[in-house]
C-alpha cells in the first residue's frame, strides 16, 4: 500500500513546482538548443571548435540544472504523495500497478539509452521513474 499524506490541492502546487523546474531546465540548456538549431538550419555537422555557444556561463548552467532537478523532484514527489479527490482501495490498486509499470519502463529506458545513446546518470533515472509512475497511474486511471 502506498500512503498518500498530502491533501488533494497540493497536486496543483506540485504541478507549479514542476513547471518552474522545466523553465530552469530550458534556461540551463539554452546553449544546447542554440547549437542544435544552428546545426539543423545549416545542415552542418556539429563541430564545437568552429562555433561556441556560451550565452549562459558554465557555472550558471550547472546551478540552474541543480535548481531544476530540486524543483522537479519536489514537485514529482509532492504529486505522488497527494491524495485523489476520492481515495479508495481501487486507487491503491492502480498505484501498485503503476509502480510495477514504472519499474519495467525505467529498465527499458535505461537499457535503450545505454545501448543507443549514452548511459543515463543516476538522478535522471530516478526522475524518469517518478515521471513513469505518474504517467502509468494517469493512463491506468483513464483507460482501465
Amino acid at each position: 500500500m502506498i500512503k498518500t499524506f498530502l491533501p488533494n490541492y497540493t497536486k496543483k502546487i506540485a504541478f507549479a513546482l514542476y513547471l518552474v523546474a522545466v523553465v530552469f531546465s530550458c534556461i540551463a540548456n539554452v546553449d544546447s538548443f542554440l547549437s542544435g538549431y544552428h546545426d539543423a538550419s545549416t545542415k552542418a555537422e556539429y563541430n564545437p571548435k568552429n562555433i561556441t555557444y556560451d550565452r549562459i556561463p558554465n557555472n550558471l548552467e550547472k546551478r540552474y540544472t541543480w535548481i531544476s532537478l530540486a524543483f522537479s523532484f519536489t514537485g514529482l514527489l509532492m504529486y505522488i504523495f497527494s491524495k485523489e479527490k476520492v481515495e479508495d482501495e481501487y486507487m491503491q490498486l492502480l498505484r501498485i500497478k503503476a509502480l510495477t509499470w514504472s519499474i519495467v519502463l525505467t529498465w527499458l529506458a535505461v537499457i535503450f539509452t545505454m545501448t543507443f545513446i549514452s548511459p543515463l546518470e543516476g538522478l535522471y533515472v530516478l526522475q524518469f521513474q517518478l515521471v513513469a509512475f505518474l504517467g502509468s497511474f494517469a493512463c491506468l486511471k483513464r483507460f482501465e
Binding site: E84, K85, V86, D88, E89, Y90, M91, L93, K141, E144
Partner: peptide, 23 residues
C-alpha cells in the same frame, strides 16, 4: 452509490464490469 459508500464512481464502474473485486 459511490457517494453513499465513500468510493469513487470509477471504482463502482470497475466493480460492475468485474474488473475489480472489492475487499
Amino acid at each position: 452509490l459511490a457517494d453513499a459508500i465513500g468510493v469513487s464512481r470509477q471504482s463502482i464502474n470497475t466493480i460492475e464490469k468485474g474488473k475489480f473485486v472489492p475487499s
